[in-house]
């Protein structure tokens, strides 16, 4: 690792790097632990005292994962497909809807504007808990159970995305919008051609957060679906771990979780720079 700047000895700098490396390693610990566990053979999984690193790495856990899922009625690829549809729907729909709402809230003058915005801020503080019961009743009564809509619709109007984007839009210059309007662009066109590209960093941030929560959350699939074909990946993985031979499947669970994290890591790598940018401009300060 490239830690020390050897050209000139700077003790403060060295201490800084030592600290950061130590903390960084601790931060990496869960990821490494999980990756390592995924490659452990059974003989090493239950060693006492437990050993952190794997001695004889094996792909057995991944093979087991395929075997287990091969025997169940629903192919594993179906779970992946469900997860991709649901997550994709939530992220795409959420981004477009929040951005559309954020634009007039930040740049238009109209009645009830501040009332709506205050509502958003208050909604940020609600615990989702109080809402779960009526949401469930609503979904089950409207006959949406066991559809993708049930898992996507409740999460589309996200207060978080709206808040982030409104704050971000507020400090963008009005002049661009004015210029476009004078040139005869309709509001709809202004939104897609000017506002959306300018919003990119905020969109990336919100997309990352909503991807993480949607991809990892077993709750909607647990509550809104009753048939096996509609389950999403996180729930399917939980079922793997909670089956009959619970002990024997620790390795398989680790393998499955390891595979689940890969898409999240990819999304993070793609959006990372923009996320840091938004946080710096999120207008929290001014």
């Amino acid at each position: 690792m490239h830690k020390f700047n050897l050209r000139r000895i700077d003790f403060g700098g060295i201490a800084l790097y030592v600290f950061l490396t130590l903390f960084g390693l601790l931060m990496l610990l869960p990821l490494v632990y999980m990756a390592v566990t995924a490659f452990k053979p059974t003989s090493e999984l239950f060693l006492f005292p437990p050993r952190f690193f794997v001695v004889n790495p094996t792909l057995m856990n991944f093979r087991d994962l395929l075997l287990i899922t091969g025997t169940s009625a629903v192919p594993f690829s179906r779970f992946i497909f469900n997860s991709v549809i649901v997550t994709g729907g939530i992220v795409l729909g959420g981004v477009v809807i929040s951005a559309m709402a954020a634009y007039p809230l930040a740049k238009h003058n109209m009645p009830f504007k501040s009332a709506i915005f205050n509502m958003v801020v208050a909604a940020l503080m609600f615990s989702p808990l109080v809402l779960q019961i009526p949401q469930y009743l609503l979904i089950s009564r409207s006959g949406l159970m066991n559809t993708y809509w049930a898992m996507i619709l409740p999460y589309l109007a996200a207060p978080m995305g709206m808040f982030l984007m409104t704050q971000f839009l507020r400090q963008l210059p009005e002049a661009l919008l004015e210029a476009a309007r004078i040139d005869g662009a309709s509001e709809w066109k202004v939104f897609w051609v000017i506002v959306m590209p300018m919003l990119k960093p905020a969109i990336a941030t919100f997309a990352l957060f909503s991807f993480i929560s949607a991809w990892n959350d077993p709750y909607p699939s647990m509550v809104y679906t009753t048939v096996q074909e509609m389950k999403t990946l996180p729930l399917a993985i939980q079922t793997i771990s909670g089956g009959v031979g619970v002990v024997a499947r620790v390795g398989t669970l680790a393998a499955a979780s390891f595979l689940m994290i890969i898409p999240t890591l990819l999304v993070f790598v793609i959006t990372q720079r923009m996320v840091l940018q938004t946080m710096a401009h999120s207008g929290l300060k001014e």
Binding site: A101, P104, F126, L131, L138
Partner: peptide, 25 residues
């Protein structure tokens, strides 16, 4: 109207899945 039509989608979602459930609960 233009402004509200932009917000409307979000508002409908918000009312349906947050505000009304909240009152209900």
């Amino acid at each position: 109207i233009e402004g509200y039509s932009f917000i409307s989608l979000w508002l409908i979602g918000f009312l349906l899945f947050m505000a009304i459930p909240l009152g209900r609960s």
